[in-house]
Design a protein around this nucleic acid. Structure first.
Lengths: 237, 237
DNA sequence: CCAAAAGTGTTGCTTGTACACCCATGT
DNA sequence: ACATGGGTGTACAAGCAACACTTTTGG
C-alpha cells in the first residue's frame, strides 16, 4: 500500500532532525492580603541551589504541552479546571546549563484560598509577593515578566477576579486586585461604575462589615456568564 | 568539584524525560493587489499529497526557535530582518501523522514586492489570498486562523504597513490594507484623520495619479520612528 | 458634465476622568 | 465628632462615528 510506504519514508525524513527536551514552566499567580503573589519552589541542588524556580515539568510522549501544564498544576496545587494560558516559548540553547531544554511558558491563575496547601508545602513551595520576588533560576525572571504582561493584557480586556478572588467579594477587593495587578491606583467611583456597567456581577444581600464602617455589599460573578464580552476594563498600557 | 558532579547528576535527571521533534511553522503574510495573502508550498508526498503547507522546518541543536524561524524565512523568501513574532504552540501528540512533532508557530510579514521570487518559485510556493485558501495539511488551518487574529491584534494597536506596503504609499492603499486585514470597510475620512494624528507618517511632494483622477499624495513612515507608541488604530474586535 | 477619489469640516454621541458630595458607622 | 470607606452625581474633555461638502480631473 503506497500510503503506508510513504509514511515509513516520512518517518525516516523526520529521523534526521534532532529532538529536544520540552518543558512547561508556569507562572502561577494568586492573590492574598491585597497582594499579587507568585508560587515558587526552591531549587534543592546545584547549579543554582538556593534559587527559586517556577513550577514546571517535562512534556511526555502522549500529551500536548497544554496537558503537560495542566498535569504540573494538578501535581503542585491539587487544582483542576483553573485558568491556564500559553504565554511564550523560551528556547536559547544555553538557557538551562544542565541540558538543552525548550521551555513553553504558561500563566495560571489560582485561588489561594481553595488550593491544596499540603501539596504545596510538601514541595517547599512558597507564595512570593510579585513586588518582592527572590532571585530566580535561569531565565525565569524574564518568563515571569512576560507572564505578568500577559496577565495585565487579559485583565485590561476581561474582568478577571473569578479566578483569583473568593466566591463573594466587595468592589473594593476587586479594585485592590486590579491595583495589585497594574501597580497603580484606580479612582474608586469610576472603577465601580465601569465594572458594574458590564453587567456580569450580581449584588448579594449581604454586607462585608470588616473592612469598612459602613459595610459594603458582596458581589459575585453571574452564573450564566458567557465569558464572551471583550469589554475594556482599564487602559493598558 | 561538587558543582560539576551535580551537573552530571542533573544531566542524568534530564535523560529520563522524552525528547521531541520541535518544528517552526510560519504564517507568512503579504499584501498584493489589495488582498492579504499567505505564502504556502505544496506538499509533494503522502500523506496529504496535493495539500498545501505553511513554511516550516525543524529546530536544530544550536538555535533557538526564533532563530529557526528566521532561518526558515531566509531560506524560503531570501529576506532578512523582517517582522516575525511568536504566535502559539500546537502540540497534540497526533497532529502530525508522520511522527510526534511539537510546532511553534510564528507570524511573519513580508513585502511581496521585494522578496526573492526565484527562491519561492523554486520551491513551488504560491501566494494565496487569505479569503480563498486551499485545503491545508494537519492543523495548519487553525495555525493560520490563530496567526490572523494575532495580526489583527497587532494592527489594531500599532500602525503596521511598513512591513507590508511599498516604501511610498497613499492613504487609500494603507486603508485598503487595513480593510483586507480586518475584512471590513473603514470610513475614509475618519481613517485618514486617525492615522495622521499619530504623527508617524510624513507626506512626500509626490502624487499618485494612477488610482484616482485627482491624485493622492504619497506618504512614508518617518525615519526616526521609535516603534514605541501603542496608539489604538482601530477597534478590535 | 459626471463619476470617483482626495481632502476637510461639523455634529452628536459615548467614554473617560477628575472631582464633589452625602451616607453610615466603629472608634 | 470624625475619619474611613461606600456609594452617587456632575462637569468637562477626548474620542469616535456618521456624514455633508468642496476640490480635482480623467473619461
Amino acid at each position: 500500500m503506497p500510503g503506508e510506504e510513504a509514511i515509513l519514508t516520512l518517518s525516516k525524513i523526520y529521523e534526521q532532525y534532532p529532538k529536544h527536551h520540552v518543558a512547561v514552566d508556569c507562572s502561577i499567580f494568586g492573590y492574598e492580603n491585597g497582594e499579587l503573589k507568585l508560587l515558587l519552589y526552591p531549587r534543592g541542588f546545584e547549579p543554582s541551589l538556593g534559587k527559586w524556580s517556577l513550577m514546571g515539568g517535562f512534556v511526555q510522549e502522549s500529551e500536548s504541552v497544554d496537558e503537560a501544564a495542566r498535569r504540573v498544576l494538578l501535581d503542585t496545587t491539587g487544582l483542576k479546571d483553573i485558568f491556564l494560558e500559553q504565554a511564550g516559548a523560551f528556547s536559547k540553547p544555553d538557557r538551562d546549563p544542565g541540558a538543552r531544554v525548550i521551555s513553553m511558558t504558561f500563566v495560571a491563575l489560582v485561588r489561594i484560598d481553595i488550593h491544596d496547601k499540603d501539596l504545596v508545602r510538601e514541595r517547599g513551595a512558597h507564595w512570593w509577593p510579585i513586588t518582592k520576588l527572590p532571585a530566580l533560576i535561569f531565565d525565569h525572571q524574564q518568563i515571569v515578566a512576560n507572564g505578568l504582561v500577559l496577565l495585565q493584557q487579559k485583565a485590561s480586556i476581561d474582568l478577571i477576579g473569578k479566578e483569583l478572588l473568593p466566591d463573594m467579594f466587595t468592589l473594593m477587593q476587586l479594585r485592590n486586585l486590579y491595583e495589585a495587578i497594574f501597580q497603580k491606583t484606580f479612582d474608586p467611583g469610576n472603577f465601580r461604575k465601569k465594572v458594574l456597567s458590564i453587567d456580569i456581577l450580581e449584588r448579594l444581600n449581604l454586607k462585608n462589615t470588616n473592612e469598612s464602617k459602613k459595610g459594603a455589599f458582596y458581589y459575585q460573578f453571574k452564573k450564566e456568564d458567557t465569558g464572551i464580552r471583550s469589554e475594556r476594563i482599564v487602559k493598558f498600557p
